[in-house]
Design a protein around this nucleic acid. Structure first.
Lengths: 230, 230
DNA sequence: ACCTGAACACCGTTCAAGT
DNA sequence: ACCTGAACACCGTTCAAGT
């Protein structure tokens, strides 16, 4: 029974100081799993502003340069975190349920996971799937579901990409401030916009981001669903 | 006839050295318009990686600290650039044409403008409209068009937000590498995904990002259009 | 192979001094 | 009010030295 590598034995101890002398330790102190876990904890505690290689190294009780034996850049760490988070996205419906509900569950959970991690979105959006095995597994589950639902092969990837684009954009929208549409002193000059915003604000039950996401998702479901043949 | 402030008289001169001594100059050297223009030029030439306050100051032939007399942060500069770019988004159709075509023109031009400026998307997505007058003007034009097209008042903002979320996500997709969906050594383990990707790759006429954007946009147009009453 | 510690080449931003 | 120049408090990353 040994602790997994990368998880410090005593993360609390203040002013721990140098824990070990230079030179290769008997057992490796770090590993990609431990780095990923520590990064996720650090981001949860300090946000992405506080997520620096120095801070990450401190929680792991190593020198910052030690991280570079296991990752080649800070971006690499973000890729590890991104792939780990993707395993929390719900794809269960694609095996068991009808297509519409499967997409709904997938899309809402996908948005909710990454709305707390929007700095990862630029990373995910351009990341080759080869570099992210759990993300690739998600695409396999979703693709299989679209195939079973009767989508023509050549439309499956475009349909998934369209949904994902909507999901990523919507994840940002969750983080928008409540007064984002307050036209302030320009209200008189923008009557149509200002009155539409007022009408939206009258709805106090639902969060504006959820109303927009639901509206867009249901429209996409209806429009994309029409492509099915089976 | 004097040059607008913020535009250096001789931007080419190499090793210009200190151009003026300390102390307030007779006429202001900088201004928000000149800073915005210079920032846009710099981003075009060096990309967002090369866009630093020091580099911006150098193109304007001032010390970096001089910028802070006109903007309060680098983020402020990005807001100025974002608002300027928004004036290139096509909203003309909302005054003259049918709703579907107006949204199409708007959405494609909006995506195209920001696909070259994806680092601005996190800024736009959470920026209060009060801070961006041209962006506010765009929303007014779009809101008016949705109202004339027969949308119920309380659905106008959610519909616009849903479309914008899709547009922002799609702007990232434009920048994705061509081999983003190459499953590599995992191809055998992901048969559904891999075969769907192969089918997509057979289409060499259209860019994958354009296929996905068109598919999603048309689905949204069909789904959202059903909300209209007039 | 995998750690430490020092160093490098930057960042954005602040502020006293000058006119 | 609006500039310069020096300084501050950081960054991510590299690399020789050590075991």
């Amino acid at each position: 029974m040994t602790a997994p590598t990368g998880v410090p034995a005593d993360p609390q101890s203040p002013d721990a100081g140098p824990r070990r002398r230079a030179g290769r330790p008997a057992a490796a102190v770090l590993g990609q799993d431990g780095i990923t876990t520590a990064a996720l904890q650090l981001i949860g505690r300090s946000g992405y502003d506080g997520f620096t290689m120095a801070a990450l190294a401190r929680t792991l009780n190593v020198a910052p340069s030690a991280l570079y034996n296991h990752v080649s850049s800070k971006r690499d760490v973000l890729v590890l975190v991104q792939d780990h988070l993707t395993s929390f996205v719900d794809v269960a419906g694609f095996e068991t349920g009808p297509w519409e509900q499967a997409v709904r569950d997938w899309a809402w959970s996908y948005r909710d996971v990454f709305s707390k991690h929007t700095p990862l979105i630029p990373v995910i959006a351009v990341l080759p799937v080869t570099d992210a095995p759990k993300t690739l597994a998600m695409y396999e589950a979703v693709s299989a579901g679209f195939g079973r639902a009767g989508f023509p092969q050549e439309r499956i990837i475009p349909a998934i990409v369209a949904l994902e684009s909507f999901i990523f954009g919507s994840a940002y929208d969750v983080t928008a401030p409540a007064d984002i549409f307050d036209s302030g002193s320009m209200a008189a000059a923008t009557p149509h916009f200002t009155s539409a915003v007022r009408r939206l604000a009258e709805n106090v039950d639902e969060k504006p981001a959820d109303v927009a996401f639901s509206l867009g998702l249901e429209a996409l479901l209806a429009g994309l669903g029409a492509l099915r043949s089976a």
